[in-house]
Design a protein around this nucleic acid. Sequence first.
DNA 1: AATCTAAATGAACGGTGTTCACTATGGGCG
DNA 2: CGCCCATAGTGAACACCGTTCATTTAGATT
Lengths: 204, 204
Amino acid sequence: MGVQERKARHKEELRQEILEVARKLFVEEGFKNVSMRRIAERIEYSPATIYLHFKDKSELIFELCEETFARLVERQEQLNERTYDSPIDFLREGLSGYVEFGVAHPDHYRVTFMMADDEIDPSTYQSPDCMGMRAFGNLRAAVEACVQQGLFPKQNADTAAQALWAGVHGLVSLYIVMPEFPWADRQKVTETLISGLIEGLQAG
Amino acid sequence: MGVQERKARHKEELRQEILEVARKLFVEEGFKNVSMRRIAERIEYSPATIYLHFKDKSELIFELCEETFARLVERQEQLNERTYDSPIDFLREGLSGYVEFGVAHPDHYRVTFMMADDEIDPSTYQSPDCMGMRAFGNLRAAVEACVQQGLFPKQNADTAAQALWAGVHGLVSLYIVMPEFPWADRQKVTETLISGLIEGLQAG
DNA sequence: AATCTAAATGAACGGTGTTCACTATGGGCG
DNA sequence: CGCCCATAGTGAACACCGTTCATTTAGATT
């Protein structure tokens, strides 16, 4: 009965090859230029074959994004293992890490958090246990810690977390969409937004 | 020579009819579902005719966005005519107006500030005198006033304006892309971000 | 050798933006 | 009036896209 296993292995290999080729196309030429036909050409199978392994294009790209966002989540959880003078330092670290990550993986970020429901399927990309949402969850937890220690007086954890998220998301998405904009100094802008918001939340 | 004028008028009428039909399709069915062929069908001309009036689809949609963003700019400039106790009140008004506007015109906002360069042409959408950029310019001016009056100590106007812009842009774009997200309370989140940031900038 | 199963595909469907050689219309002029 | 020419308009094509499905192919089982 080793035959079935070999077949299954073979199938999994092809699946991985599809992902590999798609990943390469995706990071090198962006979402728009990844087409099922081009992937098919590169793996030397017909386009229809891809549909034996993935429901549709959205699902395929989703896996690539999950893969990449998993690295952000991992990094966030590594941060968790260090100790900090204050939960605010931890939060700050998480926020700037988020921005760095987004800028480093613009296409993955775009697909995950900047695409309309007619291009991607929100029910998969925004499900509570997908990596993008888990990344936000970690951020929320960091805010929760601050609230619990009374560092963000009069703040609700959810509200504060969402405001902070919007802030860093705004940075990332503008950096991605407007690389030619005459930014004052990205580092400084990022710092100003993060520190500004945190101080504002502390002031209450 | 009234003939040429009549012809020119007729041409302008057709141009306006194209825009009108496109606008209707655009707000009712979103960017993705506005196709040159569907516009052509509705104006009862062939698709090729549209290209006698617009360079390409991007330019056509751009005009619609300009039109709409012009209303934001206008509103901002009306704000300018009132007087405020503090330039901070004026700034706050501008920021919440920006968010309201974005949420009210999600498709126009998406095209103007959330699309990649392979879908739209940044050199037109991000030119310094397009309405989107003028809207930011007004915001920047409001920040400048705060800086000049020493209300944002140790802050550079550009850096602060860009941070604030990123903040409100983040709100708008997340609201647009994730309408199903369990927002705490959009009003409160918006308030938290705007007030938080402003207080942070005041604290310096 | 015949049969069954799963993988793979060719060809099509219905769409997209865009271009271009061509036709048709109607005003200007001899 | 009839001819000419500019301009408006178009049909058909190009080169793509995602997706589906009836059909073929290949390989293992009986």
